[in-house]
Amino acid sequence: MASFVPLSPDTLEDQRLYTSARLTEVACLDCLATVGVKKNSEHHTSIQWSTEARAHCPELTRRAGGRESHAGCPRMLASIETAVREGAVPVGAEDGY
């Protein structure tokens, strides 16, 4: 069972391209969390957490599920900014994305 089922195998490749391709690992400077980061441009940032990373982040854990947990962890954001500044995260799109 699924929601819409793609009819073409190429769609699976698109799904991979847009979700898991080109993620760079960035470790938090304050806790044990490591996330996947993609920057298509200086203006854009995608952050992919894993279950494990999420469990490590004390800030997100502390917020415990209310509306306030929608905002990002400032320490992780700062760690990502540092990584970008140091050139550890490639910035740029591939064929428009």
Binding site: H43, H44, T45, S46, I47, Q48, W49, S50, T51, R54, L60, G72
Partner: peptide, 10 residues
Amino acid sequence: DRFEFEVDTT
């Protein structure tokens, strides 16, 4: 799993 996306619309 948690996923965050931000774009500065400038």
